[in-house]
Write a protein that binds this DNA or RNA. Structure first.
Lengths: 198, 198
DNA sequence: GCAAGTAATTGAACAGTGGTCAATTGCTTG
DNA sequence: CAAGCAATTGACCACTGTTCAATTACTTGC
C-alpha cells in the first residue's frame, strides 16, 4: 500500500547527505533521527535505508567529507606567505588551523575524533589516518635538527596532536565559539611549541 | 494492580547506585537502560524513578563519587615519598595519576569530562571544579619562580590539564588498557613538563 | 485494636527511537 | 505492450526514557 515518486522527485544520495549534514551540524548525531531527516526531505524514513545501510553509514559519509575539509585547512595554513625560514611559525599556524577547524565545525569534529558508539566505530575512516600523517610530517620537518628524530618511536607529533585534541574537545563540549578562545588557543599552542623548540 | 515489597527487601538509594555503577562501568551511559538496572535489582523500572528524578540524575550521583576518587588519587601521588626538593617530579607523578585514573575508570572519566548530553549537563558538578583547582595549585607551586605566574591570567595549568585530557580521551576511546600506554604517557608528560621547566 | 494516612512499588501506557520488509508503484527495456 | 527492475512506502517490531493511577506495606493517632 505504498507508492513510488515521479522520476523528477526521486531521492538522490546527494540530497540525503545535504539534508543530513545540516541537521547533524545543528543537533549532533544522537539528536537527529532518521524520521527527522526523512521529513525534511519529504519522504519516508524507509527510503533512506535504500541508499544507506544505517544511520551510522550515512553519518560516516559526512565524516569523510569533514576530513577532506580539514586537510585543505591545514595546507592553506601552511602555505600562508610562509616564512619558510621559520618552520616553527608554520607549525603554529597549522596547529591554529586545526583548533579553528574543530571549533567551527564542532559536530563534524565530534564524530571525526570523539565518537565511541560501536555502531560508528564499525566503519573505518581512512581520512583520519591521512590527516594525521600529514600533520606528523609537518612536525617532523619543523623539529628537524633540534631533536633526535630517529632512535625509537618519535612520539612528539602524537603528543602535540593529543594536546590540541584535548583543547578542542573541551571547548567543543562547553559550546564556545572560536572567537571566544583564540587567545587561549594561541597561548596553549605557544606553550606546546616551546617544549620542542629548546 | 501492583504491590509494595516487604520492608526487608525495600530498595535503597545505595543499592541502586551500586547496581548502576557496575552496569555503567561495563557498558557506558547510553548502553544502559533503566529497565536493565531494574532487572538487575529485581524490581520494576518505575521504582527507580521514586529515588532519582531521571537517568541523568542517577548517573551524576556516580560522577560525584568519581571526582572524590580522583582527588584522593592526586593526593596520594603527591605524597609519595616526595622529593620535596623537586616539585616538578611531584607534578609529573600527579599527572601520571590523572592519566592512570582516566584509563582505569574510563566510563567514570567519560561522564566526568566527556559528556555533552544536555540531559547530563543540566546537573552541576562541583567536584570537577574542586578537582581542577587542586591541580592548578600544584602546578603553580611547581612552577613558582621559574615563570611569571602573575600578570594576566596564568593559563599554564589549564594548558597542561587540556593536554592530559586529550591523551586520556583518545586512549579511552580506543579502549586501550593503562598498561599498554604507560610508556607513551610518561613521554607525553615529560614533554609537557619540559615546556614549563626551561 | 483499628482506621486513616503515608511511603514505596508496580506495570500499563505514551511518545519516541533505529531497523526490517511485504506490498506497491513508476520507469525501462525486450 | 508485457515483463522486470528499481525505488518508495508505511505498517510493524523491539526497544528506549518517563509518567502516573492503582495497589499495597508500614506507621501513626486514637
Amino acid at each position: 500500500m505504498a507508492a513510488r515518486k515521479a522520476a523528477e522527485q526521486e531521492l538522490s544520495r546527494e540530497q540525503i547527505l545535504e539534508a543530513a549534514r545540516s541537521l547533524f551540524a545543528q543537533k549532533g548525531y544522537r539528536a537527529v533521527s532518521m524520521r527527522g531527516i526523512a521529513s525534511q526531505l519529504g519522504c519516508s524514513h524507509g527510503a533512506i535505508y535504500y541508499h544507506f545501510r544505517d544511520k551510522a553509514e550515512l553519518f560516516c559519509a559526512l565524516v569523510e567529507q569533514g576530513f577532506q575539509m580539514l586537510r585543505a585547512a591545514i595546507e592553506t595554513a601552511l602555505s600562508e606567505k610562509a616564512g619558510n625560514a621559520d618552520k616553527l611559525r608554520g607549525l603554529e599556524r597549522v596547529m591554529m588551523a586545526f583548533v579553528r577547524f574543530g571549533m567551527e565545525h564542532p559536530h563534524h569534529y565530534e564524530i571525526m575524533f570523539l565518537v565511541n558508539d560501536p555502531e560508528i566505530m564499525r566503519y573505518s575512516q581512512p581520512g583520519q589516518v591521512q590527516c594525521y600523517e600529514r600533520f606528523a610530517e609537518i612536525v617532523r620537518s619543523a623539529v628537524e635538527g633540534r631533536w633526535p628524530v630517529s632512535g625509537g618511536m618519535f612520539t612528539v607529533p602524537w603528543s602535540l596532536f593529543l594536546s590540541l585534541h584535548g583543547f578542542v574537545t573541551h571547548y567543543i563540549l562547553t559550546g564556545q565559539a572560536y572567537g571566544d578562545i583564540v587567545g587561549l588557543a594561541e597561548t596553549h599552542i605557544r606553550l606546546l611549541v616551546r617544549s620542542i623548540s629548546s
